[in-house]
Design a binder for these strands. Sequence first.
DNA 1: CTGATTTTGATAATCATTATCAATTAAATT
DNA 2: AATTTAATTGATAATGATTATCAAAATCAG
Lengths: 143, 143
Amino acid sequence: MVWKRISQKLEENEYRLTPQREVILQVMIDNRGKHLSADEVYIEARGKSSNIGIATVYRTLEKLASIEVLYKTIFEGGKYRYELSLGETHQHHHIICLQCGNISEVEEDLLHNLEIHLEKKGYKILDHELKFYGYCPQCNSKK
Amino acid sequence: MVWKRISQKLEENEYRLTPQREVILQVMIDNRGKHLSADEVYIEARGKSSNIGIATVYRTLEKLASIEVLYKTIFEGGKYRYELSLGETHQHHHIICLQCGNISEVEEDLLHNLEIHLEKKGYKILDHELKFYGYCPQCNSKK
DNA sequence: CTGATTTTGATAATCATTATCAATTAAATT
DNA sequence: AATTTAATTGATAATGATTATCAAAATCAG
Ligand SMILES: [Mn+2]
Ligand SMILES: [Mn+2]
Ligand SMILES: [Zn+2]
Ligand SMILES: [Zn+2]
């Protein structure tokens, strides 16, 4: 199901599914819901294929993000993070807990009123990126 | 008006308003509405005070962001950008044009329904960061 | 003034990412 | 199947932004 969608995307864009790319994709699939940095992917990928190079990891993540198989973003810390992107038309939102650092996801879009407001002003909105900062339910109740 | 608010913030946090900090703040005030990188601030600051150091610029921007006199964010390009933050409780939104690169601001908040939705789930939301990607009115009409 | 504290500027160090390039692998052509 | 062509890889150098270090300068408190 996931693989099917991915290989289709690769085909559309004429990218081969090499063993290295397969390993990297498997890492991303195994970590669905998490947001991994290039070096974290590298560590895990080496576990599966001990001689994969870090340059290949960077290249592959970049490439997969460009065809929207991965979503690339940055959470404070100065490095990019990647996560598997299922066929969502609009990116899901993130809530970052300022206490424990946990990142949770918000599947509900709910930006419609804002986007309509902007389209009335002449903009054409294709996607969005929304991060909330605050406290997660656990940390919030402990205060 | 702006300076008054700034010097109050500095006082509250026991940061001195040194000549270098004053120059950097003046650059940020002169560029209200723009989003400057550290090196852009450095270039402009040198125009006003030719021997200011780049390290001082980095340090000062960081410090001013930590007391919320500046707002720090990152727009694709791998470097942080800063803008003067007036006393907004919640950060304004940004619309990035994928055609011309122009960044415009959305003052209307309109995230209330989403935040209420999250607070019902136990979260406490303190702030947010929202970027829209699409086409600005000019680029949109030219298509 | 005097000694303590903060701030500064030059520069070295760090860290993530990108570029380079020869070697390997896979695809296309003969 | 052998040969040519193109894509991909891995090692490593280069880059670029940011941070750390540290001695000198500025400012503050007594
Ligand atoms: Mn996510
Ligand atoms: Mn802005
Ligand atoms: Zn938490
Ligand atoms: Zn535009």
